[in-house]
Amino acid sequence: MTLFNGIYPFYPQERKPFVFDVSLIIIIVVFLVFAVSFLLILPGIRGRARLYWLFRVIISLFIGGVIVAVNFTSDWERGQVRANTTYKSFSSALVHVDVGLKVGLSGVNITLLGNPVEQLNETINYNEYFPWLFGNDYNLQYDKGLRQGLPHPILYVAEKFSTYNPCDLNSFYRIAGHYASATLWVAFCAWLVSNMLFSMPVPVYGGYMMLITGAFLIFALLSFSTVRSAPTCVIQFGDASLRPVYGASFWLTLVAGLLCFLIGGMVITLHYARPSLLNAFFDLCEDEDEDEDKVLSEIYVNPRFPPEHDVASQPNLRLSVKS
């Protein structure tokens, strides 16, 4: 901390990590534990079914992990710009910085990194998070940043998403994030049901539910895409402008949705075209009960003792009793 106009700036809140937060790390660890646990019991599965189980479980955990994780990521949209701008309000001193913006379903991350980091006898490396989900008042967080004396570029970008700004980006992104998050949780429930149906004797119903999972993932993307209908609000830094584009979470959700459609379509197609191949993939045997009946109906005769019909077929056989 350096002295600025006789006042030491104070930042009491915790910095939110730029890429990962605690919730996201917990989700990743939980799904990794499930994956490792399955890999430990995988050697106990015999034959070709081992590869089928490995493929099914890994793909299913990937889809489920993506559905849960993207709810907590902050890179549905992202943008970055390099500019010369003022560092403090009411100051004409310019700094050369990289301003970054990441928009999630529950808030925005704004970063400020000096180039170089040490300028004006200060270390310019900030990462601020402004939430708007689950009862968090964005304006309250923005006012708190004003009182704390955050750098001017961060406040300038954050102000674009406040309700004070005529662009009204806050309402567009907040409502779109609410609907996208709710739709993703419905997709997660559908994913759970599909996994239970895949373990049933008729896996085609799991294929139908997997199509529903993919449909809700696409609905979540469409819900978030409605922010593109917001009025054009340019975040300008001199000659450079900060224009966000779709980030990794958006494209990862799209991949998971298309993968759900692919899996559901293949299961339904195989159910009508090659049911035996589908049953083999899901380790199901239609003739299992028939085989058990055959085993129970078979009679095994000890070769040392001839059958009754063989004895009856020998007319010259006589029984004699010695006195």
Rank of each mutant, 00 (worst) to 15 (best):
L258G: 11
G47L: 14
L254P: 03
L140G: 06
D291W: 13
I175H: 10
I58D: 09
L211C: 14
W53H: 04
L211N: 10
V36F: 12
W76L: 02
G100Y: 03
Y129L: 01
G107D: 01
G149K: 07
V311L: 14
L39Q: 09
F261N: 09
V57H: 13
F224P: 00
T269I: 14
S229I: 11
S74C: 12
Y208S: 14
E288H: 06
Y156E: 10
Q119G: 02
L284V: 10
P43S: 02
S249R: 02
T163L: 04
L155I: 04
T253L: 10
L113M: 05
L242Q: 01
V157K: 05
L54G: 11
D289A: 11
F34N: 06
S320Q: 15
L217H: 07
Y272C: 05
I45K: 14
Y138W: 01
Y246I: 05
V99N: 00
N170I: 03
K294R: 15
I175R: 11
H152S: 05
G100H: 07
L284W: 07
H152G: 00
L242M: 05
F161P: 00
L278Y: 09
H271E: 09
Y272L: 07
R78C: 06
A49S: 12
G207D: 02
D75E: 02
T232K: 06
V103Y: 04
Y205E: 06
G79E: 04
T213Q: 05
S74P: 05
N109Q: 12
G177H: 08
S313K: 11
Y272P: 03
L61N: 01
S23Q: 11
V33G: 02
P275Y: 07
S92G: 08
V30Y: 09
M1Q: 09
R78I: 05
N125S: 10
G264T: 12
Q141D: 04
C285V: 13
V108L: 08
I59L: 15
K16F: 14
E308M: 08
T269L: 14
F34C: 07
L101I: 01
F62M: 07
T2S: 13
Y272A: 12
L120S: 13
V117F: 03
V245L: 03
N5R: 15
Q141W: 10
V68A: 07
K160R: 13
